[in-house]
């Protein structure tokens, strides 16, 4: 696949209320590149959910977006605690978020399901105590 643009963002893990910076920047870049609104919206939602997860669970991480002619690849990586049971984590409503996080409206257990719903491919690599990397693809052709 020929790549047109590569974007890299660091996700700050200190403040979950501030999450969304990377997704908003990515959204702006994709709009400048002229992608359809629906594609941009799906990617923005997927990255946003990833950002929230990285802030809540992993003290931040990185978001990389590789824009190609046929597809947009998104890689979200963190050095957090890992996901012990991915199948459970993929269930709507399942969350390990703290009470503090939930009281701010997060931790609804919709993050990973929303990411899957909005992308064409999604793969989770995770190891307890090491971290989690999520690869997602959205077809644009």
């Amino acid at each position: 696949m020929s790549e047109l643009v590569k974007l890299h963002y660091d996700v700050d893990g200190n403040d979950f209320a501030a999450a969304g910076e990377a997704s908003m920047k990515i959204k702006k870049e994709l709009r400048n590149l002229g992608f359809p609104q629906d594609i941009i919206r799906r990617i923005a939602i997927a990255v946003y959910e990833g950002e929230i997860n990285m802030v809540i669970h992993a003290d931040g991480g990185t978001a990389d977006v590789s824009v190609g002619l046929d597809e947009i690849d998104i890689t979200l990586a963190d050095k957090g605690p890992g996901i012990p049971d991915v199948e459970k984590a993929m269930q709507k409503g399942w969350s390990t978020a703290s009470e503090e996080v939930r009281s701010a409206g997060f931790g609804a257990g919709m993050g990973l399901p929303n990411m899957k719903k909005n992308t064409d491919e999604m793969e989770i690599e995770t190891e307890v105590g090491v971290g989690t990397t999520i690869h997602m693809k959205v077809y644009v052709a």
């Binding site: 209320a17 501030a18 999450a19 969304g20 997704s23 959204k27 939602i45 946003y48």
Partner: peptide, 15 residues
């Protein structure tokens, strides 16, 4: 009833 700055991010992303 949410009033933290994340509401702005959600509003932008959903348009």
């Amino acid at each position: 009833i949410l009033n933290n700055r994340n509401i702005a991010a959600v509003a932008v992303l959903i348009e």
